[in-house]
Design a protein around this nucleic acid. Structure first.
Lengths: 196, 196
DNA sequence: GTCTATACGGAGATAGAC
DNA sequence: GTCTATCTCCGTATAGAC
């Protein structure tokens, strides 16, 4: 295996563990168990645990950019693109009920740790915000596109947090419905036709 | 100092530190520094760190019950009582921007740790939910009181999470306004009169 | 009740063989 | 590049003096 491949392997395992258990609670031993590598080997690829965190955030940023690009390509309209966002909560409901939103929980943990990487992690939110704002702009809401985008982000975070505490799948579905209803009321001309 | 007083002193310090830094990231040494007690002394009052956590959650449950009772007493109407809830986000904005919501971030951390105390921590959410549902019932919305209550809780969590990541006070104020606007639309007959 | 001293394990990190 | 062995520090928890 090449160095780059091993490195990527480590980052992928860390990515999942940081999400499932949290950054601090994840030990090198956990990553070692996941990857089948020895602890000592990590230090050939990363000098510190913080460097692994930085690589994980970079990976998430790349993936998020690709995801958003795909949503835009596959959507027939900005409205449909936005609904890809809200549908994500349903598609990922199992993981969300167990570990919350990967972005929100990482930022929350880093904020408490007063960790220097918080700013970088917040970039993940900015990606979603700017992408959503772009869709609202395309819907003719250029003036308040950012406000609308942040409102959707806010709702997604609230849904994820409560879903984790309550472990309630119906709650997620109901609130995603309400989110789409809010979209209808804000952008009525884009609302999908009701079923006949 | 009596044993009960010392115990309470420990729990209060742990309460603050668990909120500010998180449960796992808080060490006995931190609590010792806060209280002026020695590490060894803790074990006279609590057998394990988990017992301190249980005591912290119990303290928060008591305090929350008292807070909700006070809100109800001081409010001139159920609608005013509900607005005490949304106003809390503004009153506590500084702490929220630094450490998030004490309830949401604790539940999120315990969920990731797969900690047995998660259920007990979730009781904090249930207190707010049931209290809010009670206000909606008093407003004549008995049928969907719980749904409305969870929606408000959801928004409070989303606001807190984004406020922590973005460190944006204006965002909080704007979303609290939107929250009150949502209240107006759901319970129009209770809406306060617009300023003349 | 509170202290000091200490056990014990696990964390991140390093050194050097292969 | 990857391993094993090891270092050091810090975490929770215990023992026992006062």
């Amino acid at each position: 295996m090449t160095a780059a491949a091993t490195r990527h392997h480590i980052v992928e395992a860390a990515d999942r563990l940081f999400y499932e258990r949290g950054f601090e609670a994840t030990a090198f031993a956990d990553i070692a168990a996941q990857t089948g590598l020895s602890r000592g080997n990590f230090y050939y690829h990363f000098k510190t645990k913080d460097e692994i965190l930085a690589a994980v955030i970079a990976l998430r940023l790349e993936r998020t950019e690709r995801l958003l690009a795909r949503w835009r390509e596959e959507a027939g309209s900005p409205r449909e693109a936005i609904e890809s966002f809200s549908q994500m909560l349903i598609g990922n409901r199992t993981e969300i009920m167990r570990h919350g939103c990967p972005v929100g929980t990482l930022c929350a943990e880093l904020a408490k740790l007063d960790h220097r990487a918080l700013g970088r992690a917040t970039e993940l939110f900015y990606l979603f915000r700017d992408w959503l704002a772009g869709q609202f702009t395309a819907l003719g809401r250029r003036q308040d596109a950012e406000r609308l985008a942040l409102h959707l982000l806010m709702r997604s975070q609230g849904i994820a947090t409560l879903a984790t505490a309550f472990r309630d799948e119906d709650f997620i579905r109901r609130e995603v419905e309400a989110m789409n209803g809010w979209l209808d009321s804000e952008c009525p001309d884009t609302a999908p036709l009701p079923h006949p």
